[in-house]
Write a protein that binds this DNA or RNA. Sequence first.
DNA 1: AGTTTCTGCACCATCGATTGTGCAAGCGAA
DNA 2: TTCGCTTGCACAATCGATGGTGCAGAAACT
Lengths: 352, 352
Amino acid sequence: MDQRVKKKATIYDLSGLSGSSPSTVSAVLNGTWRKRRIKESTAQTILGLAELHQYTTNLQARGLRRSRSGLVGLMLPVHDNRYFSSMAQTFEGHVRSRGQCPVVVSASRDPEEERRTAETLISYSIDQLFIVGATDPDGVHEVCELAGLRHINIDLPGAKAHSVISDNYQGARMLTEAIIRHFGNDDRLRPDELFLFGGRNDHASRERIAAFHATKKALLGADPDDGVQSSGYSPDITLRAFEAFYQRRGKLPRALFINSSINMEGLLRFMAGRPAEMFSELVVGCYDYDPFGSFLPFPVIMVRQNVEAMITKAFELIDGPPTAPQTFLIAPELIQPRSALKGPLDTLKDIE
Amino acid sequence: MDQRVKKKATIYDLSGLSGSSPSTVSAVLNGTWRKRRIKESTAQTILGLAELHQYTTNLQARGLRRSRSGLVGLMLPVHDNRYFSSMAQTFEGHVRSRGQCPVVVSASRDPEEERRTAETLISYSIDQLFIVGATDPDGVHEVCELAGLRHINIDLPGAKAHSVISDNYQGARMLTEAIIRHFGNDDRLRPDELFLFGGRNDHASRERIAAFHATKKALLGADPDDGVQSSGYSPDITLRAFEAFYQRRGKLPRALFINSSINMEGLLRFMAGRPAEMFSELVVGCYDYDPFGSFLPFPVIMVRQNVEAMITKAFELIDGPPTAPQTFLIAPELIQPRSALKGPLDTLKDIE
DNA sequence: AGTTTCTGCACCATCGATTGTGCAAGCGAA
DNA sequence: TTCGCTTGCACAATCGATGGTGCAGAAACT
């Protein structure tokens, strides 16, 4: 009734009200009461009171006692990106369906921050940690290991825990091939007309670059040394790479392999303020899928990583018996230009 | 040394090792030791041991005792969207800079889920809750109020707590005007050539629709009744709205006001598989900003909501003294087609 | 020397829930 | 009547950290 700023009800309150001991109340409320041979009628009384007083379990207390919290962590490099945010969306669905509480945090691709973040999550006794695209997965592993926390790498592999990643080599091979084949035989691409922008010294980039090299060589006969312009995972650095290239050559290549949607944003920045016609002949392959990116004014072939499959596999592994660290490849999918695919949001219901 | 699967060190372990009492150890480790007049040298000893044994505070225990957790919650409708994910990104930066731990969860625009999610977060004694785009802000308020949790609405206002929202009316006015003015005087838009797609019965949509109506009427002289096609916040419902429209009229309008990037994805789905030329004359205004959306093959005028300002204001309010619930409007910004703006990611450093 | 004032720390209750253990009452069988 | 088993629950320790309170010894002062 007069639930003003009243403190939340505890098992002790319900104990007093019901005449049962706190332990009985606890058992009833956490569902172990049959095992503890509590009478049905006692249970009903307590449940009624709980309802009446809007009892909710203090999960910190439970967590302290059980040394598990019911929280499952997802550590992302960044939020603001369709690949990672769809990862978060998918992850949430999985965690909720198991009755746990998802916690999503980002660590900015900073190894130091990654470890600190893991430490913090561990201090809250999270039950499992999904480490996505970490710059230093093994550093994070160290921290988790010490705390006995189950964890798994996604997107970028580590050596010391299971990893679920895209088959970057195959994906990049498909993508490179698709870019090249996009030009018919009469308008054949020359090796110096296809460049890769973006990438960093991480596993994914290395694989993609290797596949790019190999495929280019196989299909176009050669790949000049400077076919790759690394520019990290930053739009601005990528922008500068494009500007530098443009400065040197007086034009952009006819075809681009862009390492991620973040680098693609660098291309957008380059486009901004420049006439649209400058890009009308461009063909782009982008290793990431973004629905809006797919409809740019030039053909954009994209690769969509199979987030749902990766998350599913990751749960399977993290719940399974511990075995020697292994890396699992999930095949990505080639997406033709002008495709608007369904995403994790499509499973949500919306009002009419 | 042999930190195998050893349990984590506690203040009791350090107490034994250092010869000090647990309370002394606690005081040293949480920084209140000067206030408790602990000798410098004692503190150093304990800090040394803590370092050596990799002590980390059990934050659940601390949270239980203090009934605050150091967690700050952000409840989003969904993750997989540039507006909300940039909100998360910005929020994280703010929370981290105050030494707390951000927790981001989504509640799928489901009032029931929103309340449940708030309940769960409360059970972990989060310190503050930022409620973004809730379908039922006042329902969530109820839950927070009962627990004495400070909270604030963002993006969609509630009646019972402070709200920080975009100035949707002004934004929509600017956007409608920009769409109309995009057609010169010689190619004047007729009232039945501009339609609004998307929107729902929420405050933001209502304001935008009202502004759309008013501006259209003011500039084009009239607005036929069916100028608005509500289609919620779902790409697929929006797709169906476009299909229905197309069915009826045999063509799309020349100009569109699209209520959000999610609805815009409905337009993409409509575009997929249809010839690009069909859309070459289209002019779109979208109430949301997405860098890729800004470079579609037709002019897309966008509205960027000022996420940074909203979050900043929200922190200011939530930390300030409690006052009667009030709604604060933050001016959004009109973004011309083909603009690639900096976002929250740009403040992150990236390796060369 | 006796009294007051600091210093420096230990003691202990507490936050709310969990869980191993113990035990009284009830009941049937011998 | 007595033994033994089941039923139904209470007791109390525990998870790890916090913070109010109290107290001994040293220092300062009269």
